[in-house]
Design a protein around this nucleic acid. Structure first.
Lengths: 401, 401
DNA sequence: TTTAGTTTGTCTAGGTAGTCTACAAAAAAG
DNA sequence: CTTTTTTGTAGACTACCTAGACAAACTAAA
C-alpha cells in the first residue's frame, strides 16, 4: 500500500462535470433554452453560456436563435441536439440482423434488416455485422450531411459480461463465450458497446417511453424466453459480472415444468409464448398477429391458459415488487398483451402475493416505444459514453474543407 | 419550466468533495498516513496536507507523528480517526432496548440494554428511548473526554419509508405508521437517522466484516422472520419508497404454508426459527444455544427439517443470484448456523436452481461481526452523513474553556 | 561516518471552473 | 415611450486543485 498507485477513484471533479450535465440535458430534451439549462442545473448564466459554446464547438449541439414568445423578458437562446452526431445500433436475432443509425437528437437516420432463413453461427454473424456496418459507415460518410459516427451499440439477446464484453450465453442465437465487443472493435476500429436486449429496452423506456421520469424501474420482456432489466435509483443493476436481472429464471412454483435452462418451476417455464400460440392454433406468428388472436378469439382454453400464465407472472411481479419496491413496472414483448388480456386479474394476483407497502405508488405499464426501442437503448449506450466525456469525442478533422 | 426553480441536481462539486473523500478514508481505515491518502485518492501531497489540517481543525481526525519504519524515504505522517466524535445507536426489539455509543474510529464507547418482560407499545418505546438517550448524552458530555455526539441511528426491525422516516410496519414490535424519526428529532433536538435492521447489518458487514471490499452484496438475516439487505455497486438498494429488499417474502413454492403476512409458500414461511427450536425440544433460546443444539444433537428429525429449510433457502439464494448476480452473499442470524448445518447440501441446491453464469465468482459467507454489527451499521448512518458534508458538522463551541 | 537514493512535507505560482456583479439587450405591459 | 422583466455578456474574483522546487527524514551502500 505504498505510493504512486493508480487512484482508487477520481477525487477531483468526481461525478459528472458540468459539461457532461449540460450535454446530457441537451440530449434528453433534444431542444432546450439556455435559461432552462440554468434552472435545471443551478449553474449561472455565464457558465451556461461558456459550456454551450464549447459544446457547439465540439459539434454536439447547435445554437438556434431566440424562440418562444408571449412571455415577459428577453427571450432565451435555444440549443438543439446535433442531428449529425450518430450512433449505430446492431441487433442480431435468430432470423434477422437489424442495423439502425440513431442521431444524437433521437431521430432514426437509417434502418435496414437482413433476413435469414436458417440460423447462422456466431462467426458468420460477425462477418455479416462487420460488412453491413462497414457499408453503412461509408454510405453515411459520403452523404451530403457531414455525419459523425461515435460508436456502435450491440443488442444481444443473452447474458453479457459487462466488464469483458463477452457474450456468455445467448440460447436463441446459440452463441456462447463469444468476445463480440473486442472482435467488433478490432474489425471496425470504432468504440463498441454491448448490452443485453432487455436492459436496453428498459433504458429506452426510461429515457423516452413508459417509464420516463422514473428512477426505480423493473422491466420484463417476453420473446421466446423472458428477459429482464432493472434500474434502481437511476442506474442499471448490473451485479458483479454484469449478469444481473435474469428475472425469467426466478423459481416461483414447486412444479416440475422445465425452462430452457433445465430449471424447474421458473417464471420462464410457466409463462411461454409457444403455449399461447399453440392454444390458439398458431405457429411462428408475429407479436401483432398473436395479440389480435389472443385478445379477440377468446376460447375457454385460451382463457384458462392466459390466466394460468397471468398468475405466474403476477407472483413473479409480486416477488419483484417486494425485492425492488419499484416505482414503475414495465411489461414488453408478449407480456404486453398477456397483461392486456386480463389486467384486473393480474392486479389481483399481485395484491395477494405482495406486501401492501411494496405496492404503494407502484405503477404498471406496457412498453410505449415500438420497434425502435432497443435501437434507441443501444444508441444511449454510445451517447452516454460521449456525454460522460464530451472532449474525448471531439470532432475529428473535417473532411473536404 | 421557467427559470429560478431549485436545481434538479448540484452541477458543481457533484459527487463528493475531496474533503469528504479524505474523511471517508480516515474513517474507513481508522488510522492512515498522508501518503496513503495521496495514493488512494490521486490527490497531490499539497492538497492532502491542506485537507487533513482542516479535518483536524474540524475535530474529525488527529495528527499523529511519523510512524512506520523500515522503509526507504521520509516516513509519512499519520492521521487517526477521532475517538471523541460519537454516534449513538438505538435498537428497539420485542423484549429489549439496546443503546450504544460508537466512536468515529469504530470503538464502542458505551453499551447498555434495557430488558422488558412484556412487549411495550410504540409510545412507551419512544419515551424509553428518549430517556435512555438523554441520560446517556448528559453522562457523555460531563465525562472527562470531550465527546461530541453527531446524531442518533435507529435500528428498526421492520419496513421504513426512507424519505419520511416513518415506520410503516414492524410486526415483532407491533408498530405501525410510527413517525419515529421526526418524533425523536423533536424530542432530542439532534439529527436522527432510521433504517431497517438487516440493511444496517449488511452495511456493517460490508464496511468491516464478511463482505469487506465487495460492492455487490446480498445479505439475509434470520431472526423471527427473514430480513434482507442489498447493496449494488456500493449503494444500498432502497427502491421507490425505501421498502426494497424484503427478501423474506419471496414466494418460491406452491405450498400453502403461510408466513406472518399471510402470504403462501414464501421463504419466511418455509424457513422458520420456531420450527428449528421445536424439533430440538427448545423454546425461546438464544442464537448461541440454538446453534449448539442444532449442530451437536443431530437427530433424524432435525436433519430432515434442516434439510427442508436449507432447500428453501437454497432456492431463494439461487433466485437472488440470478436477480442480483452478487459478489458476496452473507447469511446472518439463525441462517448462519442453518447454513453451517450442511453447507455442501446448500451449495448443491443453489447449483441446481441458478444459472451457472450467475454463480461464477460468487462467495457465500456467514456474518463476521457479532453483537455490535447493527450498532456499527447505525453509526455508519450518522457518520456517512457527516462525511458527506464535514463542515456542517463542525465542532460547536467548546464547553468549559 | 559519509554519501547517495528515496520518499514525504511544505511552499509558491498558476490553472481551471465556477460565481457574482454590473450592464446592455430584447421582449411585454402600461 | 417608459417601465418591468428576463436574459446575454464581460470582467473581477474565488475555491480548489496541480506542478514544481526545495527541504526534511529515512535507508542503504561505500
Amino acid at each position: 500500500m505504498t505510493s504512486k498507485a493508480t487512484p482508487m477513484f477520481e477525487a477531483r471533479a468526481s461525478g459528472r462535470s458540468s459539461l457532461s450535465t449540460v450535454l446530457g440535458l441537451i440530449h434528453e430534451h433534444r431542444a432546450i433554452t439556455r435559461s432552462e439549462i440554468c434552472s435545471f442545473t443551478g449553474l449561472s448564466r455565464s457558465t451556461v453560456a461558456k459550456l454551450v459554446t464549447t459544446l457547439v464547438n465540439l459539434g454536439f449541439a447547435s445554437d438556434t436563435g431566440a424562440e418562444q414568445l408571449d412571455r415577459v423578458g428577453r427571450p432565451s437562446l435555444g440549443v438543439d441536439a446535433s442531428k449529425e452526431v450518430l450512433a449505430i445500433s446492431v441487433h442480431p436475432e435468430v432470423d434477422y440482423l437489424e442495423v439502425k443509425a440513431v442521431a444524437f437528437d433521437g431521430t432514426i437516420v437509417h434502418s435496414e434488416k437482413l433476413l435469414y432463413d436458417d440460423p447462422i453461427g456466431q462467426d458468420q454473424a460477425l462477418e455479416d455485422m462487420v460488412q453491413v456496418i462497414d457499408s453503412l459507415v461509408t454510405q453515411l460518410e459520403t452523404s451530403d450531411t457531414p455525419y459523425r459516427i461515435l460508436g456502435i451499440g450491440v443488442i444481444v439477446p443473452g447474458q453479457i459480461n459487462s466488464l469483458t464484453g463477452i457474450v456468455r450465453q445467448a440460447p436463441n442465437l446459440q452463441w456462447s463465450e463469444f468476445p463480440i465487443r473486442d472482435l467488433l472493435t478490432e474489425r471496425l476500429s470504432m468504440p463498441v458497446f454491448v448490452a443485453n436486449d432487455a436492459s436496453l429496452g428498459c433504458k429506452a423506456e426510461m429515457a423516452y417511453g413508459a417509464a420516463k421520469g422514473a428512477t426505480d424501474v423493473v422491466y420484463m420482456h417476453g420473446t421466446s424466453g423472458i428477459g429482464g432489466g432493472v434500474f434502481m435509483n437511476g442506474t442499471e443493476l448490473k451485479g458483479f459480472r454484469g449478469y444481473a436481472a435474469e428475472l425469467g429464471h426466478m423459481r416461483i412454483s414447486s412444479g416440475k415444468e422445465l425452462d430452457y435452462s433445465g430449471i424447474q418451476g421458473t417464471l420462464e417455464a410457466l409463462v411461454r409464448r409457444d403455449d399461447l400460440e399453440a392454444v390458439l392454433g398458431l405457429k411462428n406468428v408475429s407479436d401483432e398477429d398473436l395479440e389480435i388472436a389472443l385478445l379477440n378469439n377468446r376460447t375457454p382454453e385460451s382463457t384458462a391458459l392466459a390466466r394460468r400464465q397471468l398468475e405466474a407472472l403476477g407472483i413473479a411481479t409480486a416477488n419483484l415488487a417486494n425485492i425492488f419496491n419499484p416505482e414503475v413496472f414495465v411489461l414488453a414483448g408478449f407480456l404486453r398483451f398477456l397483461y392486456r388480456f386480463d389486467q384486473n386479474y393480474f392486479h389481483r394476483v399481485i395484491k395477494k402475493h405482495a406486501i401492501p407497502a411494496s405496492l404503494e405508488g407502484m405503477r404498471i405499464f406496457v412498453n410505449e416505444l415500438g420497434a425502435n426501442s432497443m435501437a434507441i437503448g443501444a444508441s444511449e449506450l454510445v451517447f452516454q459514453e460521449a456525454i460522460a466525456d464530451p472532449t474525448k469525442f471531439a470532432t475529428p478533422a473535417k473532411r473536404n474543407p
